[in-house]
């Protein structure tokens, strides 16, 4: 929740004499702590997957095809007799990896474009921002699918594609930040002692402009996991037999009558993971900017505020 709980609010107001530190403010966000804990559990489980379940995600149990959850198969087995829990853990690795890679690509590219655009202004800025407008006007689904057919469907390809369709908001956020900073005195000072433009931009401006980008990147990981799941569900994402939370849902609809657990578990994993990233993102936003308006949250929201 973007808004702190009333209790946290009260605690915060008692601390007004000495403003609480960044970490203290972050800790006040109980939901964010829950989010971080959930995320930690998910990540650790996925990384330790083989240790936990000890089986190959593609190993077939010939005694159990499409069998419901039981002690032997915690989340049941799929239509081919593969253990669903093992596949969830291995699929989680792929989904999380794609989420982080896509975020790095999208936020990295967007941050760079935004920084250059805001710093140099003029024609560069005009052109960069029109490119942002162009990319934002094409419904993302079209781009994701067309690029998947064009570029390819390896784990890196999928991450690249998602990143390439997600850099626009980071670019706008970074641009707004740089615009606000570039005329400040300390930047003038850096210039006046003869620092080169690139040094002024990357040494003096970018480090001070990065906070909102960090908030956005947290949310971007969650969004990238959702994008991966949509692409894979439609058959244009991670290709089987490699499991991902998205492609495990591809056949779920076919078996929804006979094996509903196959539809439920991967989706639940996506929801709690994305939810955790969103909660952390909102808490970071509040912690980094205690004066900012609370309660604004979600998809691209801070981008919209930045460009409003």
């Amino acid at each position: 929740m973007g808004a702190a709980s009333p209790l946290a609010e009260a605690q915060e107001s008692q601390l007004l004499i000495r403003p609480p530190s960044f970490w203290r403010r972050l800790l006040l966000h109980k939901l964010a702590i829950v989010g971080a804990a959930v995320l930690l559990v998910v990540i650790v489980l996925c990384l330790l997957g083989p240790v936990v379940t000890g089986t190959n995600p593609n190993a077939i149990d010939f005694t159990a095809f499409g069998s419901p959850p039981s002690l032997h198969h915690l989340m049941g087995t799929d239509d081919l007799g593969r253990d669903e829990f093992t596949r969830i853990l291995f699929g989680g690795r792929i989904s999380l990896l794609v989420g982080f890679l896509a975020m790095l690509i999208g936020v990295g590219l967007g941050g760079l474009v935004g920084a250059i655009s805001g710093f140099f202004g003029g024609t560069v800025d005009f052109i960069a921002m029109r490119v942002v407008d162009i990319a934002l006007s094409i419904p993302r689904l079209f781009l994701l699918l067309l690029l998947s057919v064009t570029i390819g469907q390896s784990i890196f390809d999928i991450s690249l594609i998602i990143g390439l369709t997600a850099w626009m908001y980071p670019a706008r956020i970074m641009r707004a930040q740089v615009l606000g900073l570039r005329s400040l005195n300390y930047v003038e000072a850096a210039r006046s002692i003869g620092s080169r433009s690139t040094r002024v931009l990357f040494r003096h401006i970018v480090p001070n402009a990065i906070a909102p980008l960090i908030v956005n990147s947290t949310i971007q990981v969650g969004q990238a996991i959702v994008s991966e799941s949509v692409m894979s569900f439609l058959g244009y994402g991670i290709q089987p037999p490699t499991p991902s939370w998205g492609n495990m849902l591809t056949n779920a609809q076919t078996f929804v009558q006979t094996a509903p657990w196959l539809a439920i578990f991967p989706g639940v994993m996506i929801v709690i993971t994305v939810l955790a990233f969103n909660l952390i993102g909102d808490a970071l936003r509040d912690a980094l900017d205690p004066t900012g308006q609370k309660g604004a949250l979600g998809r691209g929201r801070n981008a919209k505020q930045a460009t409003a």
Binding site: V230, G246, A252, Q253, V256, P260, I264, V271, L275
Partner: peptide
């Protein structure tokens, strides 16, 4: 409402559709 909208935002739209089919049709 806050909790529900957080959940709604974290949900892939196609999965929501599948779950609705599971509950209301199947």
């Amino acid at each position: 409402m806050t909790v529900l909208s957080y959940a709604g935002m974290a949900m892939p739209v196609f999965w929501l559709g599948i779950i609705l089919i599971l509950v209301f049709s199947v």
